[in-house]
Design a binder for these strands. Sequence first.
DNA 1: TCTGGGGTCCTAGGACCC
DNA 2: TCTGGGGTCCTAGGACCC
Length: 426
Amino acid sequence: MRPGAVQGDGEAGRQPDDSGCRILHVDMDAFYASVEVRDQPELAGKPVIVGAVGGRGVVLSASYEARAFGVRSAMPVNRAQRLCPQAVFVAPRHGVYGAVSKEIMALFRGVTPEVEPLSLDEAFLDVGGAIRRLGPPAAIARRIRASVRGQYGLTCSVGVASTKFVAKLASTVSKPDGLRVVPAAEVLAFLHPLPVAALWGVGERTGEVLARFGLRTVGDIARTPLDTLQRELGTAAGAHLAALAWGRDPRPVQPRPDKSIGAEETFATDVADPVVIRRELLRLSERTARGLRAGGSVARTVVVKLRLANFKTITRSKTLPEPTDVARKIYDTACALYAGSGLDAQARLRLVGVRATGLLPAGTAATQLAFGEEPAAWRDAEQAMDKIAGRFGTGTVRPAALVRHGEPGGPRGARESAPRGARESA
DNA sequence: TCTGGGGTCCTAGGACCC
DNA sequence: TCTGGGGTCCTAGGACCC
């Protein structure tokens, strides 16, 4: 085991040097699969795979029993099924995961208010202000791991470092059920042997570019002149990678407001019928608007995403005269963008999406003015629907166009993946 | 291998204003 | 009348992350 690493609860050996480390990255282990097992004890010890059931989706999460068969997240579900035919497949239930996530984030906020959630199952914490009360960062990390296990029966991994980026890498290498401290003095020794793909911002494309120049490790990038990196990758990306390779990451932990909210859906089979597509745009506009209202936001710009049968994706956007959180307004804009997309009338679509960007807090002076005008009636109606949905469940009330038509030809059934704002408040 | 759904950030060109 | 350059906004697309 490397110095400073702690696996499981066996914490024998020297205390890690956590001086200068105030950033924690907490990452739940196989979060979705773990929640399924927790909620259905009969699944314990079995391979569990969470993802789109029987369709064109990919694996969202797999228990460690399923991983033993080679199942990995982001793998197409049909391939996972071939690798592990005895696995139990579970469709995502966002409300369930969202509720657990919300409680765990609240637990983190009991440690420090400086919590920046990255997704449903991971967050950064700046514990600088909690050291006097709770002890050194490594002790705080141990306390968090014990609390999550004790209260939720779930394991998580924690990285402790002086920057966000190193803390995140540290939690990754300690997985599963681990703790890793990277003291400030050991950052470069920790970083430089890692493959370039470990750096934030290096995906498949950038990795190929770097490989062409013979750059395989983080240390290789650190030794490459900045102007060479910038010439090949662009000004921002080049500077970004160079900084990370030297362990420089000045970004503070900060709870950030959402930049956009949206919803999208892949059809079970490709669709050319404009009537079906517009019906789906309506459903997605409803979801998006609900997310906006739940988060107390209004949006200036509506973006429509259209993915063709051959996977080519186009987007079309329109900035509104006034910001809105009204589904009818979003839907009308989305339909106009779809109509003006220039797609062939026979074009078969694999996916459609609606996204609202340019978010502002609702209720500011500028937005008040806008609400005094035409969409007020729609807004009142939709707020009434929010209240009913809050009492009786999403989908109790919806536009007639969504009630009459059943599932055939429509998007894959069962799953209701709510936009983030709605999910968090579920 | 045959590609989900939620997002963020960056680039680049064109319009427009001063 | 023709002109330069900077700033900002909008739109489209692409890479990336979990």
